[in-house]
């Protein structure tokens, strides 16, 4: 006898989402939720559809994605580079330790106005903000990843004839990759959040700007529509990273998956 088929979890997840949306819709239709403050799902969906139909949203979306992609790329490159450098150089890591701590303890939002002054209203002030967020997440994870390399594996590679450079290529990078990847998941989300906050505080384009404009005229539906688009973007990008991770970390068992980041 075969076991009864279990309903896949995705079905339940979708059902939960649908139920919550239905509750929201019903609440606002019955007047329990004030439409002015809470809008309603059907309006939001219609608005998003309009925005795409009229093409108004594309420019904003492209700007935000470009800013996020730039801050992600620069932040990851810098974070991985410095992570390796400091993990391999004890003097440098001890010298810079207090400064890194201080810099990381700084709330990034307060930097936004300064970056606006320095880099202007265009994309670079947002990219700068995004980089400060991404860099530290990736940096700490890379640093940790390189430090946590199993010394027996390092010794084995050295006995097999590895030079310092070969050691980095064959042992340190693959070993740190799991840590770096766990930071990529988080830093992609944070890169998008950071540039949107930057746009919100002062810009001429982007999803964040769009949201702040809607808010300026008390257009709740417009705010929610912007949020919905952002959420969809973050989910899509996350799925791509997931795919990449599955491929690059195929040598790992699923149960000792990448360590959680500490935020």
């Amino acid at each position: 006898m075969s076991a009864p088929k279990r309903t896949p979890i995705v079905v339940w997840q979708l059902l939960l989402g649908a139920a919550l949306l239905a509750l929201w819709e019903a609440g606002s239709r019955s007047g329990l939720l004030d439409k002015f403050f809470f809008s309603r799902p059907s309006d939001i969906v219609r608005r998003v559809a309009e925005m795409f139909a009229s093409g108004a949203v594309w420019g904003h979306l492209a700007t935000t994605l470009l800013e996020a992609a730039l801050s992600f790329a620069i932040g990851v490159a810098g974070g991985v580079l410095f992570g390796f450098l400091l993990a391999r150089n004890r003097f440098l890591s001890q010298l810079l330790d207090p400064y890194i701590r201080v810099a990381n303890a700084l709330p990034r939002v307060v930097l936004a106005p300064i970056f606006l002054l320095w880099f202007g209203l265009g994309i670079w002030s947002k990219v700068a903000l995004g980089v400060t967020v991404v860099f530290f997440i990736v940096f700490f994870n890379t640093f940790q990843g390189v430090r946590e390399v199993d010394p027996v594996i390092v010794n084995n590679a050295r006995m097999l004839g590895a030079s310092e450079r070969q050691l980095i290529r064959h042992v340190l990078i693959p070993s740190a990759l799991a840590w770096i990847f766990s930071s990529l998941h988080i830093s992609i989300g944070f890169a998008i959040i950071a540039v949107v906050v930057g746009e919100y505080l002062g810009a001429a384009k982007g999803i964040g700007y769009m949201i702040s404009q809607a808010e300026g005229v008390f257009d709740t539906t417009g705010v929610f529509a912007g949020m919905a688009i952002l959420a969809a973007v973050v989910l899509c990008v996350g799925a791509i990273v997931d795919r990449l991770e599955r491929y690059l970390l195929r040598w790992k068992t699923r149960d000792d998956a990448a360590p959680e980041s500490h935020l």
Binding site: V152, I153, N156, P174
Partner: peptide, 11 residues
């Protein structure tokens, strides 16, 4: 050197 512990490169 064949080590006492597991020393293969897991990747």
């Amino acid at each position: 050197y064949m080590f006492q512990q597991d020393a293969l490169l897991p990747w």
